[in-house]
Amino acid sequence: MLYLYAILESPPPQKTLPAGIGGAVPVFVETHGLACAVSAAADATIAPEPSQIWRHQEVVAALMEGRPVLPLRFGTVVADAAAGLRLLARHHAELSAQLDRVRHCVEFALRVAGFAEHADPSLDAGPLSGTGPGASHLRTLVRRERGWPASSDGFPHGTLNAHAQSRLLWARSPSQPDLRASFLVQRRSAAAFLDDVAALQRLRPDLGITVTGPWPPYSFSDPDLSGGPE
């Protein structure tokens, strides 16, 4: 089995990479102008332990220095190098386009604790009241947008959006009550973005506002593969 870390453009960097999952040394498989960082996986199942996830992250972070990367979701494996090459070949057009979208960008994670959520019973009635997975998904999307405060004098986060190429809102849940958002920010705008987060915290000291990053663009790496497998 091969464990997959991230996809990047060829040629991949020549530098020594951090040890990967299980201490294995990452190497690359390459085709169609793309490279995928992989390492041998002794076990077909990967335990989602923080230490392993940090290893995944450290490899991806080393790869993103100076080049765009698409981090794969933790735990992704293929049978062998030939299978990895087939994946790159099959999806090279979409993957290359997605690499262009995240070029020069990093992800920042913003959390806002203490911002009351307003229940919206209207979501449980009307056209979104269905019980199917489609209606449920749409309710989730609407709740994310409505749960995120509109930019205003009291919470002027509009400037954060201005710095971002893209934004993703995370759904709240009983176990995840904080407002959470991912921002895809150009590296050159990162300092300004962080300055505005600090200004937001000064304006609203009652809220617990935290930002972590820069992260690889985990939240912005999935291209539209709606065409399905070939």
């Binding site: 991230a6 996809i7 698409l70 981090p71 794969l72 979701r73 933790f74 992704t76 293929v78 049978a79 299978a83 087939r86 994946l87 099959r90 999806h91 997605q98 991912s182 985990y218 939240s219 790496s221 999935d222 291209p223 593969l225 399905g228 497998p229």
Partner: peptide, 8 residues
């Protein structure tokens, strides 16, 4: 999050 690839 992160990239999810179809297929194998």
């Amino acid at each position: 999050k992160g990239l999810v690839i179809w297929g194998e």
